[in-house]
């Protein structure tokens, strides 16, 4: 395989360069160089007036072990974990339904998941706030129906953050799941039934193992961005569910400590790489992450 690709590269050097060249330049300028810059910055110091000084220090990394930060890492992992689980629980039956429906407009169902994402997610998250807030529609409705006398505080807790995360990241679970379920061979389900398996056994023994790759890639694609979606915990969590994303954001904004923010970012990147590595180890297909 390797031999073959090297050979084709040689005999088509010019066309290959034309194809790969621009992409390489793009990746170099917009991915590699910024990453290197962040990496270098994470070892820099700041002076009294918060200017970045190119003086080597590891203190940014030492500060990451601050107990307050540790608690935030814990919250991040918890929220991301809950979000992923919920996305699987809702996303699996949902994807199964749209992938297996005999309805001729199934593309429409699929589009209904995608279309909301043509609107900025910040706006949509604010929408939730308008809906769930103490003066929001839901409370208004509950009070009109006399189900509650006082408005209920739905927002500003971990639950609200998880809700927002699930809402934002749901399509990233549905897309790989849909793909995995869609390509499941109908004959295999018939064969299982033919050999005496009832519906739930077929699900456990055939459908689930063969769509596990979709669950894996969906989980990766939900879990990782969840750690970084600071605006969701900002708007819906109201400081009660700070995550790594919020921490990083604060260093670059109000905290004005870019080197510390850079160190946190490097840690986030390392966690991400670790998860992807785990995914690969578990037999995950890298291509299905590239949606």
């Amino acid at each position: 395989m390797k031999k073959l690709s090297r050979h084709t590269f040689r005999s088509n050097t010019l066309p290959s360069m034309a194809m790969v060249g621009p992409v390489t330049l793009w990746l170099a300028f917009f991915v590699a160089i910024p990453l290197v810059y962040v990496f270098i910055m994470s070892f820099c110091s700041i002076d009294e007036s918060y200017n970045i000084v190119f003086k080597f220090t590891a203190s940014n990394y030492e500060r990451l072990f601050n107990p307050n930060y540790m608690q935030i890492y814990g919250t991040s992992i918890l929220v991301a974990f809950l979000t992923t689980i919920l996305c699987i629980l809702i996303g699996y039956p949902f994807s199964f339904m749209i992938a297996r429906t005999k309805w001729k407009h199934k593309a429409l169902l699929y589009m209904m998941v995608i279309i909301p994402f043509w609107t900025n997610s910040l706006i949509r998250i604010y929408g939730w706030r308008t809906f769930l807030g103490t003066g929001g529609w839901l409370n208004h409705l509950l009070m009109t129906l006399n189900l509650t006398s006082e408005p209920i505080e739905f927002l500003f807790n971990k639950g609200a953050t998880v809700l927002g995360m699930v809402y934002c990241l749901f399509p990233f679970m549905v897309l790989p799941l849909y793909t995995a379920i869609e390509k499941l061979d109908q004959n295999l389900l018939e064969a299982s039934s033919d050999l005496g398996a009832k519906g739930h056994t077929t699900f456990r023994k055939v459908i689930l193992p063969l769509t596990m790759s979709g669950v894996f890639s969906g989980s990766i694609m939900v879990f990782i961005p969840c750690l970084g979606y600071f605006f969701v915990s900002d708007i819906l969590g109201g400081g009660n569910s700070d995550m790594i994303g919020n921490l990083i954001e604060r260093q670059f904004q109000s905290g004005n400590n870019w080197p510390l923010g850079a160190a946190l970012s490097i840690i986030l990147i390392l966690i991400t790489l670790l998860l992807v590595k785990l995914y690969q180890k578990a037999g995950g297909d890298m291509d299905s992450l590239g949606v």
Binding site: D185, N187, E190, A191, D194, K205, L210
Partner: peptide, 13 residues
Amino acid sequence: VNTVFQSYALFPH
């Protein structure tokens, strides 16, 4: 009754 499918339909996993 049991069936032998045209595409074999063996469980790949």
